[in-house]
Design a binder for these strands. Structure first.
Lengths: 217, 217, 217, 217
DNA sequence: AATGAATGAGCATTCATTCAT
DNA sequence: CATGAATGAATGCTCATTCAT
């Protein structure tokens, strides 16, 4: 599978395409946040992007293309932000820091993640796999962090547990955004992170060793 | 806040209203599963319910009412299925069984949960709180299970941890459905439940005590 | 091949469908006459038919359906008008009268025929065969007239000549309409009919003086 | 009336205008053949012509100009091909040969003729007369052929008959193209030509057996 | 209480044409 | 002269909702 699903643009100048799509995506994200994909019209997207409806369609083929570009962009952003996560040294501390970092990114991008979360199902059968693949890559990054702790003997987990743990962490990051109505009333981000890491690692490294007193950050 | 948001019906006969809404919800759920709320037309809903579009509007005021009724119904069903969960005896065993039971319900109703999950955002500002309240009640049920273990001294957790743990468990149940594309390829339901409970309780009851060999069921 | 291509209507009451389509076709023909199929909008068709755009689409699926219905209707009308043509007695006189009758029908319906003539190419690959089949049936009616003269020995023509003659007559009828800018300035309908029949039959009955054996090329 | 309707070009260099229009017409004809005038976009025309949409509009003012140029060109081509027809010697043989020649041209150019035939109605009130005039000139050429036979006493026809005969021949040539679905299945070009000429002349030269006095109606 | 025909605002998309570079 | 990005009016079609029967 190719890494990106090409979205057709009539305009040839690649720089311009990039620029216009930036505008478009920025506008669309903000609209999708407010009203969701279905309730947003292409005209609104064009207007929010700062150009005419005709111009919008020079850079996409269908409305769904906008959704795909939005999802793609969000993943890309999240991934860029998480890139450093890759270089975990395999210590528990670096793992925790990685997770904290991930949670912080998810906090900062919670609107975007929410959008993607709720609208991804509107992607065509054609585009969905690309987005899911991206998501798996991100889970893979978390998995990598954990794996390196296992490799260095800091954790004792089989591959299935590693994978599921990664998925749990990943979802807990998203959760902070999509269950904000329940969580953000009750916890500050810091508290949330500390508690989640605590619950997570208490399980992994064993009950007696985990000091509940000090936070990670 | 009232427990239910009343949905206006022109028809007076309450029995009939109940019956017709049953038909309507059943049809709607099946349609929403396939195509989502936005892509489903009121005509399709009426047809699936077995009556005419005119009749449909005798029992609702707007299309969104259908969504609310559907969400409401799904919660009700889930809650009914979880009712017995209430009577945890406060043993770790009963807690685990409760969670297993919850996971099984979420497995059986994954389509419905997915629908609710993805479409709830389309509810009006008016209806959303009712649905969120229901969700909190369900989290509350999980919380109750954990609490009773704490009360009986089987677990040592402060109220914040109890709450977050309950949310985690709750989301892990939903996760099985909404991340099925990633999870159900890799795990059987049984494996998933065992692993999750393992990861959960290893942390809570301490590392050395948990025998990883035997599953819960 | 079925005799008619069904055009889907959402409305069940067949009488009503018939009635509404009557209105629609009448309006459409008049518009197509003025501006052609492509330059006529569905809104205009609806308005000319006396109902809203929404209602129009209760009785058709696509704009092209209107064109098909129009073509179908025109053929039906022409055929109805030509029905009596069927009972040629096989005399030269009845043949001539048949042709005269046909020319008169084509004169009366020249607008409709022109429409069909110029717009038929816009029919989908799906619908075209039905229209062509109808046209062949009408040619067949002319052919029948000639054939019965041959059968009774009033004319001596092989089947190929019969067929081509029928096509010629058929086209000459249409010609009166679609070349009106050239013909109707110069000839009255009566003159045109007399002259065409004259030219036609002079050839047919003056057969013996012409050597049919060698082709020209 | 002028002989040509001027189509405005911004570009001054007449040679270039000629060259560009050549490209444009060639591309347009090929597109119109496939999809008709209305379904062809100006962008497609430009592309088929080998230059940009901006350049296209340096050589025309509106899309309809392209249609006019195409029609004009087709007539010009047909006329060029028929030029030799002019020099009929007034023998029956030369008349027949002329008609054969015309039929052959119409066979070769049937796509073009079909295009013109079906799209001419889309010409503006402004441009139509020029095209019709061209068509009359061509009919005039056929008429000339017949006339010279009459002049030399090989045929005995009044001017009205001459004219109508010319129109009939002309239409029979076009017919071969626009009724190809009916005719070309049944006849080879050669057969078609022989039969048509046969039917035509049998009538014309076998004249004495037919009473011209009374009309049919 | 049930029906389903009618409505029309609303939407995605196209495309002829312009104009700055 | 050539280019092609920008424009926005126009169009086919949908669908939630109403209301007369």
């Amino acid at each position: 599978m190719k890494d990106k699903r090409e979205v057709h643009a009539s305009v040839k100048d690649e720089r311009l395409v990039e620029k216009r799509r930036d505008q478009m995506i920025k506008g669309a994200v903000s609209l999708f946040k407010q009203k969701g994909f279905h309730r947003t019209t292409t005209r609104e997207i064009a207007k929010a992007a700062g150009f005419s409806i005709g111009t919008l369609y020079e850079y996409i083929r269908t409305k769904e293309d906008v959704l795909y570009l939005v999802c793609d962009r969000i993943y890309e952003q999240v991934r860029l932000e998480l890139e450093e996560l890759d270089v975990g040294e395999g210590t528990m501390e670096s793992l925790k820091l990685g997770i904290v970092h991930y949670f912080q990114v998810m906090d900062r991008m919670q609107d975007e993640v929410l959008v993607m979360y709720q609208e991804a199902k509107s992607l065509s059968k054609d585009a969905l796999p690309y987005v899911l693949k991206k998501e798996m890559e991100m889970v893979g990054m978390v998995e990598g962090l954990i794996q390196s702790c296992v490799d260095r003997g800091r954790l004792d987990l089989d591959s299935e547990r590693i994978h599921l743990l990664a998925q749990n962490v990943f979802v807990q990051g998203q959760m902070w955004g999509f269950r904000r109505w329940a969580l953000q009333k009750r916890f500050s981000l810091e508290d949330y992170m500390n508690l989640q890491i605590d619950l997570l690692f208490a399980g992994v490294i064993g009950y007696e060793t985990h000091g509940r007193t000090g936070g990670v950050i």
